[in-house]
Amino acid sequence: MTISERIAVTGATGQLGRLVIAELIKSVPTAHLIGLVRDAAAAKDLADRGVELRTANYEDPAAVKAALAGVDKVLLISSSEIGQRVRQHGHVIDAAKAAGAKLLAYTSILHADTSPLALAEEHRKTEALIRASGVPSVLLRNGWYTENYTGNVAAAVQHGAVLGSAGKGRISSAARADYAAAAAAVLASCESQAGKVYELAGDTAFTLADYAVEISRQSGKTVVYKDLPEADYKATLRSIGLPEAFAELYAESDAKAAKDALYDDSRQLSALIGHPTTPMAQSVAVALAR
């Protein structure tokens, strides 16, 4: 990137957004970083580090347009509001176009164009909007976050089981920090990134049975993997409080993972960040230490 380029990160106070900004700060002057946030008070730590904060909500196209004024590069971190994403993403795409952005990076999903996951549909539609906009763009097709699993490590140890519908499917997940490092590398790159598509996933794959074995090894407690029919897994997720839509999508994603929908062996992620991705065992250790 040139010395004068300004980079905006949407969802800057989110789990991924904060990590991306932390990575960017290592190589980009903070005066050139802009964080789009819903609540500036929740991002005081970013402001204290010199990051400019601009308030904008995905649902408010006028606010998004104002927030992206004068920006050269934009990272559109996909919204968490399933079912609303395409419209919300469209507001950011339109604003990036109005700003004359030189690059729009979007966090899509692994193999979005061919993925059988229901979650992929909104990403495919967003990618189509980006192409139609004419804004120079790069697609960061992120695989599964290992934290999607390790967030439930304590429960797995308590109950002695990891539940799912993934069968013997291989899961090429990586730590959220790995994906953040990739986004930062693309945004800070001096090389043109327009038109590139990165299929990002962990270097090594594991099954949920492997994951359960690793929890057992590190915790000293017996933890086994219990494979459930998709409908039963969905019912279990509902019973622990997940909303219907989320339970359905998680169960469906797990069932598709049984057919290797979350597998990728291209190692594009580690090539992009310049080091191996975080091993699943390391993520388990971090989760158990909490």
Rank of each mutant, 00 (worst) to 15 (best):
E59I: 06
G164F: 05
T204Q: 13
H123W: 13
R170C: 03
V9P: 05
Q88F: 12
V138H: 00
A261K: 00
G90Q: 07
R18G: 10
S165F: 04
D45K: 03
A212D: 09
G151S: 11
L129R: 13
L24C: 09
Q193I: 13
L249M: 15
R170Q: 13
N57Q: 07
V71K: 01
V135L: 11
I21G: 06
L75N: 02
P136W: 01
A96M: 06
I25T: 13
R131W: 09
R217A: 15
K44A: 13
A66Y: 02
L163P: 03
I109R: 06
N152R: 13
T55P: 01
K125S: 10
S189W: 01
A166C: 08
R6H: 05
T2Y: 07
L208P: 10
Q84N: 10
P279I: 02
L237V: 04
S189K: 00
M1F: 06
V28L: 04
F206I: 07
V64T: 14
Y106A: 15
R176A: 13
L242Y: 15
R176M: 14
Y106D: 14
E147T: 11
L249Q: 11
A174S: 10
Q88T: 04
G167N: 08
T126S: 09
S27K: 09
A132T: 10
A67M: 08
L117E: 12
S115Q: 09
D113T: 08
K102N: 00
A183F: 01
V92I: 11
R18F: 08
A201G: 02
V92D: 07
N152A: 14
K221H: 15
N142I: 14
G195P: 00
L110D: 07
G50P: 00
I93T: 09
K26Q: 14
D113R: 14
T207G: 13
M1S: 09
P276T: 02
S283K: 14
T126P: 03
L68F: 05
S78M: 12
N57V: 09
R38I: 08
